[in-house]
Amino acid sequence: MKETGVKAFTLAFILAGNGCDPAWDGERPLDGDDAAQIKRIRDAGGDVVVSMGGSDKEGRKLGEVCPDEQSLANAYQKVIDAYQLKAIDIDIEKGEFESPAAQDRELGALKILKQRNRDLKTIVVFPVDRSGPNDDGKRLIRRAHEIGSDVDVFTIMPFAFGGTDMTRDTISATEGLAREIAGTFAIPLEEAYRKAGISSKNGGVEETVWLEDFHNFLDYATDRRLGRFTFWAVNRDRPGDPSDDSGSGIPQRDWDFTKVVARYSGALVDPAREPQN
Results as ranks from 00 to 15, higher is better:
Ile14His: 05
Glu190Arg: 09
Ser131Ala: 15
Ala73Thr: 09
Thr155Met: 03
Gly19Arg: 01
Asp68Trp: 04
Asp223Lys: 09
Phe13Gly: 03
Ala35Asp: 05
Met1Asn: 11
Ser265Pro: 00
Ile38Leu: 12
Ser199Thr: 14
Thr10Met: 09
Ala267Trp: 04
Ala233Asn: 10
Asp31Ala: 10
Lys39Ile: 04
Phe154Asp: 01
Val260Leu: 02
Ala101Cys: 11
Ser131Lys: 15
Phe161Asp: 02
Asn18Thr: 11
Lys111Glu: 08
Ser200Arg: 00
Asp31Gly: 06
Cys66Gln: 05
Val209Glu: 02
Gly132Lys: 00
Lys2Trp: 10
Gly183Trp: 01
Ala144Gly: 15
Ser172Glu: 06
Gly183Tyr: 05
Ile171Thr: 04
Gln115Ser: 15
Leu11Asn: 13
Met52Asn: 07
Cys20Met: 03
Ala102Pro: 00
Ala44Cys: 07
Tyr220Leu: 03
Leu15Ile: 05
Gly17Arg: 04
Val205Met: 09
Asp245Phe: 11
Glu96Ser: 14
Gly176His: 06
Glu98Asn: 14
Thr167Cys: 01
Leu62Pro: 11
Leu72Met: 04
Pro100Val: 04
Lys138Tyr: 08
Gly63Lys: 00
Asn202Glu: 08
Met1Gly: 15
Asp25Asn: 06
Phe97Lys: 02
Gln84Trp: 06
Arg139Thr: 11
Leu120Met: 01
Leu268Asp: 08
Gly249Leu: 00
Arg60Leu: 13
Glu69His: 07
Pro100Arg: 06
Gly53Asn: 08
Gly26Glu: 06
Gly203Gln: 05
Asn18Ala: 14
Met52Leu: 10
Gly17Val: 01
Asp68Leu: 03
Arg228Gln: 10
Arg238Ser: 09
Asp104Met: 13
Gly227Trp: 01
Leu120Val: 01
Cys66Ser: 10
Glu27Ser: 15
Gly45Gln: 02
Gly137Pro: 07
Leu226Met: 03
Pro127Gln: 08
Val234Glu: 05
Lys2Ala: 14
Leu140Tyr: 01
Lys138Met: 13
Ala82Cys: 10
Arg60Tyr: 12
